[in-house]
Computed example of a mutant assay.
Amino acid sequence: MKKKTVLKLLFIASCLVAVVAVCSLFYNNETSTLDSLAFQNVEALASGENDDNAICVGYGSVDCRTYKVKYKVTDFSLD
């Protein structure tokens, strides 16, 4: 009788380990997607911080190369 009880407990424990392993695989896939999305957001925010091609016109409240201007014109490209 004790042998059957021990075998049942071992079977239940192995099933629980398998369920935890499957859940951790799904969790890892979600985190890698989130990390990829976060990286893309950082890249998108970092691109375009350089205003080398901007044309700053007048005096106002718009930031352009550390100056306050009325208009800031940047060239757009389809590259």
Rank of each mutant, 00 (worst) to 15 (best):
M1F: 14
M1P: 05
M1K: 10
M1H: 12
K2V: 03
K2S: 05
K3A: 07
K4P: 03
K4H: 12
V6W: 04
V6C: 05
K8D: 03
L9D: 06
F11T: 12
I12V: 09
I12P: 00
A13N: 09
C15I: 12
L16G: 11
A18R: 02
A18V: 14
A18I: 13
A21I: 08
A21H: 03
A21Y: 00
C23N: 12
S24F: 15
L25G: 06
Y27V: 12
N28L: 10
N28P: 01
N29L: 14
E30L: 13
E30D: 14
S32H: 07
T33W: 05
T33R: 09
T33A: 07
L34V: 05
L34F: 06
D35E: 14
D35I: 06
D35C: 04
S36N: 12
S36F: 05
S36I: 07
S36D: 15
F39T: 12
Q40N: 13
N41G: 08
V42Y: 07
E43Q: 13
A44T: 06
A44Q: 11
A46N: 15
A46G: 05
A46W: 09
G48E: 02
G48M: 03
E49Q: 12
D51A: 05
D51M: 04
D52N: 11
N53C: 06
N53D: 15
A54I: 05
I55A: 15
I55Y: 11
I55P: 03
C56W: 00
C56Q: 00
C56V: 01
V57K: 10
G58M: 03
G58L: 00
G58S: 00
Y59R: 06
Y59I: 13
Y59K: 10
S61G: 10
V62D: 01
D63P: 05
D63K: 05
D63Q: 08
T66N: 15
T66R: 08
T66L: 12
Y67V: 08
Y67R: 13
K70M: 04
K70V: 02
K70I: 04
K70D: 09
Y71L: 03
V73C: 06
V73D: 07
V73H: 13
V73Q: 11
T74W: 02
T74V: 11
T74A: 07
D75P: 01
F76W: 08
S77I: 02
L78Q: 06
D79E: 13
